[in-house]
Design a protein around this nucleic acid. Sequence first.
DNA 1: GTCTATATCTCGATAGAC
DNA 2: GTCTATCGAGATATAGAC
Lengths: 211, 211
Amino acid sequence: MRETDDRIFDAALSVFARKGKDGARMQEIADEAGISKALLHYYYRSKDQLYEKVFEHVMSRLERSFGERLMKAGSFEEVLGSFIAGYVDFVRQNLDVMRLMVNEHLTGSPVVAGRLRTIMDSSETMPTVVFVRRLEEAMERGEVRRVDALQMLITVMSSCIFFFIIFPTIRAIHPLAATDSDQFIEARKQHLTDVFRTSLLTSQEQAGEDT
Amino acid sequence: MRETDDRIFDAALSVFARKGKDGARMQEIADEAGISKALLHYYYRSKDQLYEKVFEHVMSRLERSFGERLMKAGSFEEVLGSFIAGYVDFVRQNLDVMRLMVNEHLTGSPVVAGRLRTIMDSSETMPTVVFVRRLEEAMERGEVRRVDALQMLITVMSSCIFFFIIFPTIRAIHPLAATDSDQFIEARKQHLTDVFRTSLLTSQEQAGEDT
DNA sequence: GTCTATATCTCGATAGAC
DNA sequence: GTCTATCGAGATATAGAC
């Protein structure tokens, strides 16, 4: 059996992610961790401190994710494919992290924006940072047509993340998602890679056009 | 000064959207509506009933939005442009509606999925329904290359919605969003229309390829 | 470290005056 | 219709035994 500390952490992340900071109940976290409410307070004096801790950890998990893999990619086409696959997999394996971040944004907690800015600036291996740099380089070389690189980043990220949020609804409208979600997710990676590759890569026959 | 009823409704939508159903506080709603907590209970017996009412209204607002406009569009290229512009504008003008729906999904409330299914089936003027049908027709005619129409819908919707969720972060990384958000949003419509048009429309020189 | 029991506070909801 | 005051449930947090 794992350390109590770990179980608390996972339970807290899960509950905070679903209910938000205010909606979360200490009792629910304790239950999910299989301990008493008192013990929960023994480890973390208050709900605020527990949330703080969870949020810290989430941010660091985001920071060191799959950036290195991207650095190694050769062509921008490879970068695009790796970014999409890596991002989708990361979100799938860290659903609660994603939910927590979304919740943070919805509640308008001022913490997020400032922190993300710092991370984006500092970490040279942040996948998002690598993606933008590689995209800009590829535009320079004429490998891809000219677009606003940051807008492109936002578009690709949105497409990789948002469907996880509304998955219950997607289940209701897409047959494959209902029957085999893993297969649906793989199909989605394919679809996204295809859509954005087709949109970006300049072939000889296709003249570049900008905004 | 508007009807008390209206003020309550707007306040409730706003607070529920930010905090979720559990996280929302009746006191906060009362404050935002500029009335006492007691009066709030006078209008709506319980928090559950208030939430129910708000949710009902939100769903109906989604249902009859900008579907008619889409029906009139001629080519699929027009459909695409109208859908993106219409969707982005709808979300911008109904931010709380979007937040509420996202919150519903995060909390795993079973209400959403079932309801959306019904709406998607029933309403022939739902923008999303129109979009998918028009896309499929355009593929038949060879006006656009073959893709999974539902995946495409998800991708376009994601790109139109998600950036509103993470707007605080976007402010921190995109200069235009920080200085003039309206202008940023217009630029985003342009970007999305461009990206997906380029990806989908088959020109003579460009052979269709599928998943 | 972990529990049960309890103190303390906050929230949803009601009573009753105006 | 609107308020102040308050009840009772349920939440966070603490005390104290093991």
